[in-house]
Lab assay of single mutants.
Amino acid sequence: HDVTIHAGDKTIHVHGASEEFLRIIEQAKRDGIHEEELLRLIEELVK
């Protein structure tokens, strides 16, 4: 999957995102996670 995530003034493109990655991001959004926290989460996941 190619994913584009908008968080605040940043746009992150993730190529080859796994289903698990997508679920984590969707869950985080539903939980109302702060955008900066979401960015950190994404950066950890894509290392």
Rank of each mutant, 00 (worst) to 15 (best):
E19G: 07
H13N: 09
V3L: 13
I12W: 12
H15K: 06
S18M: 04
H1E: 09
I25D: 00
E26P: 00
E37K: 04
H6W: 06
T11Y: 10
E44I: 08
G16L: 09
L38I: 09
E20K: 03
R30H: 12
A28T: 01
E37L: 08
R30A: 15
L38S: 00
G16K: 06
T4H: 09
I33R: 02
K47S: 14
R40Y: 08
E20W: 11
A28C: 07
E37W: 07
E19K: 08
I12E: 02
R23I: 10
E20I: 06
K10N: 09
E20T: 07
K47F: 13
E44F: 12
V46S: 08
E20H: 09
R23V: 08
R40S: 09
G32L: 04
R23G: 07
Q27S: 08
K10R: 10
I25E: 00
S18H: 06
R40D: 07
H15L: 14
V14K: 01
H6I: 15
E19D: 14
L41N: 00
H6N: 12
D9I: 02
D31V: 03
H34E: 15
E44P: 01
E43A: 13
E36T: 12
V46P: 01
H15Y: 09
E20Y: 09
I5N: 02
E36P: 05
E20C: 02
H13A: 06
K10L: 13
I12Y: 11
G32F: 03
E36F: 10
L38M: 08
V3F: 13
T4P: 03
R40F: 09
L22Y: 09
V3D: 03
L45W: 15
A7P: 03
E19C: 05
H34C: 13
L38Y: 02
T4N: 07
L41C: 01
L39V: 13
L22D: 03
I24F: 10
E36R: 07
I42E: 00
E44K: 07
A7V: 15
K47M: 14
T11G: 04
V3E: 03
I24A: 11
I12M: 07
R23W: 13
L38W: 05
I24H: 04
A28K: 03
L41K: 01
I5A: 02
S18V: 04
K47N: 14
I5Y: 05
E43V: 09
E37A: 13
I42L: 09
L41P: 00
E19F: 07
T4F: 08
L38C: 02
G16C: 04
L39P: 00
E20R: 03
L38P: 00
H13M: 12
E26W: 09
L38E: 00
D2E: 12
D9L: 04
K47L: 15
H6A: 09
K47G: 14
E44G: 06
H34P: 15
E35F: 14
I42G: 00
H6R: 03
I12P: 03
V46D: 04
A7E: 03
E20D: 13
D31N: 11
D2H: 14
R30D: 05
G16W: 11
E26R: 06
R23N: 11
V46W: 10
I12Q: 02
K29M: 15
R23L: 14
R23D: 09
A7D: 04
T11W: 12
I25S: 00
R23Q: 13
V3G: 04
D9V: 01
I5H: 04
A28P: 00
S18R: 04
H6V: 15
K10A: 08
D9G: 11
H1G: 11
G8R: 00
E36M: 11
I24W: 10
I12V: 12
L41G: 00
I5P: 02
D9C: 06
R40C: 07
I33Q: 03
R23C: 04
Q27E: 11
T11I: 14
E44S: 09
D9T: 04
H13L: 13
A7W: 14
R23M: 13
A28D: 00
H34M: 14
D2A: 13
I42N: 00
K29Q: 15
R30N: 12
I42Y: 05
H13F: 11
E37Q: 10
R40L: 13
I33V: 13
F21S: 04
E26S: 05
K47R: 12
A28I: 04
I42D: 00
L22T: 05
S18Y: 06
L41W: 05
A28W: 14
L41H: 01
A7G: 06
G32Y: 03
S18D: 11
R23P: 01
D31S: 07
R30E: 12
I33C: 02
L39N: 04
G16R: 02
E20V: 05
G16A: 09
V46A: 08
T4S: 08
H1L: 14
H13Q: 12
L45P: 00
H13S: 09
E19S: 09
G8A: 08
H15C: 07
V14R: 01
H6T: 14
L39F: 13
G16Y: 10
L39D: 02
V46E: 05
T4A: 06
E19P: 11
A17M: 14
D9A: 01
L45E: 01
E43F: 11
T4M: 12
A28V: 04
A28M: 11
T11Q: 09
H13G: 02
K47V: 12
H6C: 10
H15P: 09
L41D: 00
E19N: 09
L39Q: 07
K10V: 14
L22V: 12
Q27R: 09
H1K: 13
E36H: 10
I24S: 05
I24K: 09
R30T: 11
T11N: 07
T11K: 04
E37S: 06
A7F: 15
I25M: 05
H1I: 15
G8N: 06
S18G: 07
K29Y: 14
L45K: 01
I5Q: 02
A28G: 02
I12K: 01
K10G: 05
D31M: 07
D2P: 11
E20F: 06
A28S: 05
G8W: 05
E44H: 10
E26T: 06
I5K: 01
A17V: 15
E35P: 15
H6P: 05
K10Y: 12
H34R: 13
A17L: 15
E35G: 15
V14M: 08
I24T: 08
E43R: 07
D9R: 01
D9K: 02
L39E: 06
F21C: 04
H1W: 14
K29L: 15
H1D: 08
F21A: 08
T4D: 05
G8E: 03
I24P: 00
G32V: 02
R40G: 05
S18A: 05
H34Y: 09
G32Q: 06
G16N: 14
T11C: 02
V46L: 15
K47P: 05
Q27G: 04
L38D: 00
A28L: 12
G32S: 04
E37C: 06
E20A: 08
F21E: 03
E36S: 12
L45S: 02
R30K: 09
L45Y: 15
H34G: 15
R30P: 01
D9M: 02
H13E: 11
K47C: 15
I24L: 12
D2S: 15
H13T: 15
E44N: 08
I33N: 01
V14N: 01
H1Y: 15
K29E: 09
I42P: 00
R30C: 01
L39K: 05
V3T: 07
D9E: 08
I24C: 04
G32R: 02
H6F: 07
I33P: 01
I33W: 11
I12L: 09
G16D: 11
I24M: 10
K29V: 15
L41I: 08
I25C: 04
D2N: 14
H13D: 06
H15I: 14
G8Y: 07
A17Q: 05
I25K: 00
H13K: 06
V3I: 15
Q27H: 05
A17T: 06
V46K: 05
D31A: 11
A7L: 15
R40K: 14
R30G: 04
K10S: 09
E19T: 07
E35H: 13
E20G: 03
R40M: 12
H1A: 12
I5M: 05
R40P: 00
H13Y: 11
H1S: 12
H34Q: 14
T4Y: 09
H15T: 14
D9Y: 03
G32D: 04
L22K: 06
I25P: 00
G16F: 13
I25F: 05
F21N: 02
K29R: 13
H1F: 15
G8Q: 05
K29N: 08
I5F: 08
I5E: 03
I24Y: 07
R40V: 08
V14C: 03
K29S: 10
H34I: 12
L39T: 05
G8V: 05
E19R: 06
T11P: 05
A28R: 01
A7C: 12
T4G: 03
E43C: 06
E37P: 02
L41Y: 05
E44R: 07
A17R: 01
E19A: 10
E20N: 06
R30W: 09
T11A: 07
E35K: 08
E43H: 08
L22R: 06
I42T: 01
K29A: 10
V3M: 10
K10I: 15
E43I: 12
G16Q: 10
G32E: 03
H6L: 13
L41M: 08
K29G: 06
T4K: 03
H15V: 14
R23E: 12
E19Q: 11
L41R: 01
K47Q: 14
R30V: 09
T11M: 10
E44V: 03
G32T: 03
H1V: 15
H13V: 15
V3K: 01
G8H: 07
T11L: 14
K47E: 11
H15R: 02
Q27L: 09
E35L: 14
D31C: 08
H34K: 15
E37Y: 06
E19V: 11
I5C: 04
H13W: 06
H6K: 07
